[in-house]
């Protein structure tokens, strides 16, 4: 298991290559990278706050749940905090498994839980000032499918 909560940028390609090289016997590696989006061209930056200590514990528990549900060779989660500009990589998840279904499902499970059960809060800075991103109803209901 590889878990990093960090301020610094990361190289998703290099991370994925290192992760893939480290898994033995896995026939499938799935990865997801989240990027700061500027949907309507008004976002100048995003600030991500987190709860040091609880963040690592919560993500660790989510990874353990995924490992219990699916037969995974390995899991990687990187999540950034601090100030990020549009186009920057916020986070990435990678899963390795013998078969692709487990790798895909576990990656989606991790994403769904990271969204509403890991203590991060996003604040967007735009032309009209700053606003905290509100949690969406569908993020909460996404958990019920698991």
């Amino acid at each position: 298991m590889h878990l990093s909560v960090q301020k610094a940028a990361f190289d998703a390609g290099a991370e994925l290559n290192a992760f893939s090289a480290g898994v033995v016997g896995a026939g499938a590696v799935v990865s997801f990278t989240g990027i700061v989006r500027d949907a309507d061209g008004t976002l100048s930056a995003m600030e991500i706050e987190h709860y040091p200590g609880m963040t690592e514990a919560a993500i660790g528990a989510i990874i353990t749940q995924a490992q219990t549900r699916w037969d995974l060779a390995d899991v990687l989660v990187i999540h950034r905090y601090g100030r990020l500009e549009p186009g920057a990589q916020i986070m990435m998840v990678a899963t390795a498994a013998r078969h692709r279904v487990a790798a895909f499902e576990a990656a989606e499970f991790l994403m769904d839980y990271l969204k509403s059960r890991a203590p991060f809060w996003k604040k967007e800075f735009g032309h009209d000032g700053a606003t905290w991103v509100a949690a969406k109803e569908e993020d909460e209901s996404a958990l019920t499918r698991w």
Partner: peptide, 24 residues
Amino acid sequence: KLSSFDAPLAGVREVAFFPPMTGG
């Protein structure tokens, strides 16, 4: 650890209040 408003505080050292999380 995420908890509820009716949870007891006996033995608790750290309480945190925050809005619903927006990670990912």
